[in-house]
């Protein structure tokens, strides 16, 4: 009997590499959607492995709300230049200036929903036919039903009742002109897998993932960072706490957790004992029970 066996993380890595290679070969103009978050950082490493020793055969694209943490933007630019890949930045501010979308107003105003229009416009402008994303099925219940290859019609819409069945390793990327696919190579990874992989590969991540002192305000059970885009009510006030972020999104809606974890190893211990999902701190998901499902149908990431 043979004793050949790959560990689960190596199997997940091999699966993701397989998907990258398959899509880069089946499609003409793929792009990797890069947010600067840990999932897209893992995605970039997997893409490097898939095409090594050649460079990535596609660019990175960031949908920039301009409400990002400055640390994330700094990290994004450095990573793109380190690995020698083209970075496209599409700005939500441009979409607002062009009148394509209107800024939300009110206390919990966020640019999160506006990203969808900017994303779809950029896909059309650059004629991208496959967009790699770092979404995982364990993140959120609407994502649990995603496929590796998620078909989007010419309006960028997702139809959960009409997805193509995916069998074995056979990925069907056929499409009509104007349609595109979202591709999720790390669909089968959990938050813990991502952190363990970051540790294993010794990947750099933005500093906001690590514990630091920051002024935050508590709103609806979520700790939001002090920034120019946030309006406080009379009763609210900033307090300085030792915190870190579990996900990277807009400053207006990404919640912090109080934490002393200052290294990937200590973060792993924290994730192992966490009692809240990582998106539990995302104000954008708290809008309604089906917030993610609704956004995805419209063409969200």
């Amino acid at each position: 009997m043979y004793s050949y066996n790959l560990t689960h993380l190596k199997q997940l890595e091999a699966e993701a590499i397989f998907i990258f290679r398959e899509i880069a070969s089946q499609f003409e103009r793929p792009v990797l959607l890069f947010s600067g978050g840990k999932d897209s950082i893992v995605l970039v490493r997997l893409a490097q492995k898939a095409f090594w020793p050649a460079r990535l055969p596609f660019p990175l694209m960031h949908i920039d709300t301009e409400h990002n943490f400055p640390e994330t933007i700094h990290f994004r630019d450095k990573l793109a230049s380190d690995i020698g890949v083209r970075l496209i930045v599409s700005s939500v501010q441009d979409s607002i200036d062009q009148g394509r979308v209107a800024e939300e107003s009110g206390l919990n105003a966020s640019r999160n929903n506006l990203q969808t229009t900017t994303l779809l416009d950029a896909i059309e402008e650059h004629h991208f036919d496959a967009c790699f994303g770092g979404a995982r099925r364990d993140e959120e219940k609407a994502r649990a039903k995603e496929r590796f290859l998620s078909h989007r019609d010419e309006f960028g819409q997702w139809d959960p009742k009409n997805q193509r069945p995916e069998l074995w390793n056979l990925l069907n990327g056929r499409k009509d002109p104007g349609e595109h696919f979202r591709v999720f190579p790390i669909s089968n990874w959990t938050e813990m897998d991502v952190w363990q992989y970051i540790a294993l590969e010794n990947l750099e991540i933005p500093s906001i993932y690590f514990s630091h002192q920051r002024e935050v305000v508590r709103r609806n059970g979520v700790l939001l960072a002090k920034c120019d885009f946030l309006n406080l009510t009379e009763k609210e006030q900033y307090e300085e706490l030792t915190i870190r972020f579990r996900t990277v999104g807009d400053m207006t809606c990404t919640g912090a957790v109080e934490s002393e974890a200052g290294s990937v190893e200590t973060i792993i211990q924290e994730v192992a004992s966490a009692r809240e999902t990582e998106r539990g701190g995302r104000a954008d998901d708290k809008r309604s029970e089906a917030a993610m499902e609704d956004r995805k149908k419209e063409g969200y990431f």
Partner: peptide, 23 residues
């Protein structure tokens, strides 16, 4: 816990294959 989409929760049925993870 496993009925993810709104239509499923409302109708008490499961549409399509869903993937779950534990270790």
């Amino acid at each position: 816990l496993t009925d993810g989409l709104r239509a499923e929760r409302e109708q008490g049925i499961t549409i399509d294959v869903a993937y779950r993870y534990f270790a």
